[in-house]
Amino acid sequence: MIDQEEVRRMQWAARRGMLELDLVLEPFVNQRYSELSDSDRAIFQRLMLREDQELFSWLLQREAPEDKELAAIIKQILKFARTVPADR
């Protein structure tokens, strides 16, 4: 069982102050974070340490992270964001 304090920390971390990021990251954390594997949660936590401009570029697919693990979690986030809310 995932610790709810960890979820709250990631909810806070997903509030980036850039609306475009908030609209993608916050719903992902609220609806999917607790379902991620331990390793994917650790990768997501590393992702949240990155700069907003990097995240923005990656989520808009202008660039891709060199780190394959970060690229994979970005792919999961984008898949989630492209899914109709009723089907999440």
Rank of each mutant, 00 (worst) to 15 (best):
D3V: 06
D3K: 05
D3L: 08
D3T: 04
D3F: 09
R8F: 11
R9S: 04
R9D: 05
M10Y: 02
M10A: 03
W12R: 15
A13N: 10
A13Y: 05
A13V: 04
A13T: 04
R15M: 08
R15Q: 14
R16T: 00
R16H: 01
R16E: 01
G17A: 06
G17Y: 06
M18A: 14
M18C: 07
M18E: 09
M18K: 13
L19R: 14
L21V: 02
L21F: 03
V24L: 14
F28K: 00
V29I: 05
N30M: 15
Q31K: 06
R32I: 06
Y33E: 04
Y33I: 00
S34A: 12
L36V: 10
S37R: 10
S37E: 07
S37V: 09
D38A: 15
D38I: 07
D40M: 11
D40C: 09
R41M: 05
R41P: 02
I43K: 08
F44M: 06
Q45T: 03
Q45P: 02
R46A: 10
R46L: 13
L47D: 00
L47A: 00
M48H: 01
L49A: 10
R50S: 13
Q53I: 11
Q53Y: 13
Q53G: 10
Q53L: 15
L55T: 01
F56W: 07
S57L: 02
L59R: 00
L59T: 08
L60R: 13
Q61R: 15
R62G: 10
E63K: 08
E63L: 10
A64E: 09
A64K: 10
P65D: 01
D67F: 06
D67I: 06
D67T: 06
K68N: 12
E69D: 14
E69N: 12
L70K: 03
L70E: 03
A71W: 07
A71Q: 07
A71P: 02
A72I: 08
I74S: 08
I77N: 05
L78K: 07
K79E: 09
K79F: 14
F80K: 12
R82S: 14
R82H: 15
V84N: 14
V84G: 07
P85H: 03
R88P: 00
